[in-house]
Structure formats: structure tokens, C-alpha cells
């Protein structure tokens, strides 16, 4: 296969909005190759040997931070994770100064999570080394969307024509935004569903359907992606109570039956059992929640590899 068949010319991964369908396919192929490697006895490659990957986490995260650490380790990079809530930023240092200092300490790649939308794009302009966005406020979380789409791609062979519902707190969700761009680019039909206060009509202008009626929104869907109700954020007045949310929009057995028979349940985690999803559904055969986590490792490996200049062809052997 010619190089042009697997395009990737980016140093940074900031958003899925800016990716082409072909670039997403390149990520999938690279992810699949790394997934194969992860299945081997010595599940490690020398791709990033000698490089230092720095994870800058200005916001709480377990899953994403561990996945990036693990991914960098499997690629033989040196990896360092900094909890920025306890660091110099709390002493008044600006983000520019913080990242320039870390760059001066010879970091080769930066993974950043930050509560402010645009912060990953901002530091990618400040620094000439690769920057990967691990979540910038409610803006984007591209590696999450890529791993979600990869999971669907594996399950269904393609996203073309798939009908997917994303259910929950869309307004404050970077996962929803990154997924709606990635899924629609790959030809899926996306419906956003949840309370009117958390799923504004403006989203319709991005080529998706907005619904506040769970039954019709779930009908005939191939997959439903649940989002955690982020009650720690400032949307306390967006719905009356967690109980009310669960009654109106929580996924239970009855509501699961509204989907297609073989439909899958997805969730980027962390899940709140008994809130957005009945506990038993989270563990049911239709749930791919743990597969998402596993695919998250290979996806982060692929993204680190591609942004560091690695070629998809070198892995797939074509």
C-alpha cells in the first residue's frame, strides 16, 4: 500500500473535528497493529525508545492518565506524569511558562488534560514538540472518540450507516463533541438525547439529530453511548435531581429493548451504577465498556506513535 493510503502528517492531536476520514482510518489500522502486538508474550515495541513523554494533568483523571502512561511505556518511552493541581500553576505561573519549562527539560511529547477549552491548541502553538489533547474542558477528547469508534469499527466492520445514540449530559461533554465529529465523518447517523437543558438544539447544525424523547431516540439504534451525569460540575440546575434523571433518562432493561437486538452499550467511564445505567446492564454481554478500555491502550499507542512521526505502514508490514 502506498503511503498516501495511510495519511498522517500531524505533530499534534488536538481534535477529531480537524481529522479527515482517511486520517481516522490510519489511526484504526495503527491501533489494530498495536492491539496485535499487545497480544504477544513480550507486549512492547521500541518505537519511542529514548523519548520522554510528559503527561500534564491539570484535572483529575485515572483512566486516561494510566492509559497514556501505559501506552508510552509499551512504546518504550520514558514517561512522567505530573499532577498539575499541586504544582507551580497553583503558585500563579501561566500555562505558557509551565509548558516552556517542561519543554526546556527536554520533553519530547506532551499529553495534556486541562479544564479550559482550547488549552491543548494553545500549547501546541507555543511548543514545536507534539502535543496530544487528553481532554480540554468541554471541547474535545479526541483519543476517547477514536477508541470508541475503533471499538464500533471492530464490532460492526464499519461505522457507515450505523445508528448511534449518545445519551446524557451532552452540553458539558468533550466526549460527545469528539464522538459526534468522528462518527459523522465515518458515515454514522448520530442522535444526541437527554434533557433539553443539557442537549441544546444548536447541536443540530453539526449534522446530528437532537432528541429529548428517549423511546424514539433509542429505536433502531445499533449502539448507545452513555455519558456520566457530571453532578460535580455547575449544571446542578439543569435537572431537578439525580433520581429524576434516572427515572427519565437512565438506561434499564426495558429501555434497552427499544434498541436493535444486538445493539451495544458503550460508556467512556467512570460509570455511576444505578444513575445513568442499571448495574446489571453495565456487566451484560451487550456492554463493551471494558473493551473500550482495552482498545484505549492501543489507540493511545497509535496516537503517540503517529504524532511522533511513526508510519502506519511500518507496523502493518505493507
Amino acid at each position: 500500500m502506498a503511503t498516501s493510503g495511510m495519511p498522517w502528517f500531524r505533530k499534534d492531536l488536538i481534535s477529531t473535528e480537524e481529522l479527515s476520514p482517511e486520517e481516522i482510518q490510519t489511526v484504526f489500522k495503527t491501533t489494530a497493529a498495536f492491539k496485535k502486538i499487545l497480544g504477544r508474550k513480550t507486549a512492547k515495541t521500541p518505537s519511542l525508545r529514548g523519548k520522554t513523554v510528559v503527561n500534564l494533568f491539570f484535572e483529575n483523571s485515572t483512566r486516561t492518565r494510566v492509559a497514556f502512561e501505559m501506552a508510552a511505556t509499551k512504546l518504550s518511552a520514558d514517561v512522567m506524569s505530573l499532577d498539575m493541581k499541586t504544582s507551580s500553576t497553583s503558585k500563579g505561573e501561566t500555562l505558557r511558562d509551565t509548558v516552556e519549562n517542561i519543554h526546556a527539560l527536554a520533553a519530547d511529547m506532551i499529553v495534556i488534560r486541562h479544564s479550559a477549552p482550547g488549552s491543548a491548541a494553545y500549547i501546541s502553538k507555543v511548543l514545536d514538540i507534539p502535543v496530544l489533547n487528553a481532554g480540554d474542558g468541554a471541547h474535545e477528547h479526541p483519543t476517547q472518540a477514536l477508541l470508541d469508534c475503533f471499538t464500533l469499527h471492530e464490532k460492526f466492520g464499519s461505522l457507515k450507516g450505523l445508528k448511534i445514540a449518545i445519551l446524557g449530559d451532552i452540553l458539558y461533554s468533550r466526549v460527545a463533541r469528539s464522538n459526534l465529529w468522528a462518527m459523522t465523518k465515518l458515515g454514522a447517523e448520530v442522535t444526541l438525547v437527554g434533557p433539553a437543558t443539557l442537549v441544546p438544539r444548536e447541536f443540530e447544525q453539526f449534522g446530528v439529530t437532537v432528541s429529548h424523547d428517549l423511546k424514539s431516540a433509542l429505536a433502531d439504534k445499533d449502539a448507545v453511548m452513555l455519558l456520566r451525569i457530571q453532578h460535580e460540575r455547575q449544571n446542578a440546575s439543569a435537572f431537578p435531581s439525580i433520581n429524576e434523571y434516572t427515572r427519565m433518562f437512565g438506561l434499564n432493561k426495558t429501555r434497552l429493548s427499544w434498541l436493535k437486538e444486538n445493539a451495544v452499550i458503550m460508556h467512556p467511564g467512570p460509570i455511576n451504577r444505578g444513575v445513568e445505567i442499571d448495574s446489571e446492564l453495565a456487566d451484560s454481554p451487550q456492554s463493551v465498556i471494558l473493551e473500550q478500555v482495552t482498545n484505549g491502550l492501543a489507540t493511545r499507542m497509535a496516537c503517540l506513535y503517529l504524532c511522533s512521526g511513526g508510519k502506519a505502514e511500518a507496523l502493518t508490514g505493507s
Binding site: 473535528e17 477549552p117 482550547g118 480540554d136 474542558g137 468541554a138 471541547h139 474535545e140 452540553l171 458539558y172 468533550r174 463533541r177 441544546p200 444548536e202 447541536f203 447544525q205 453539526f206
Partner: peptide, 10 residues
């Protein structure tokens, strides 16, 4: 509040 804020998550 509008199209752009919805897109950017601001």
C-alpha cells in the same frame, strides 16, 4: 451562547 460556544465547549 450559540453555535460557536456549542462547538468549542466554552
Amino acid at each position: 451562547e450559540g453555535l460557536v460556544s456549542t462547538k468549542l465547549g466554552l
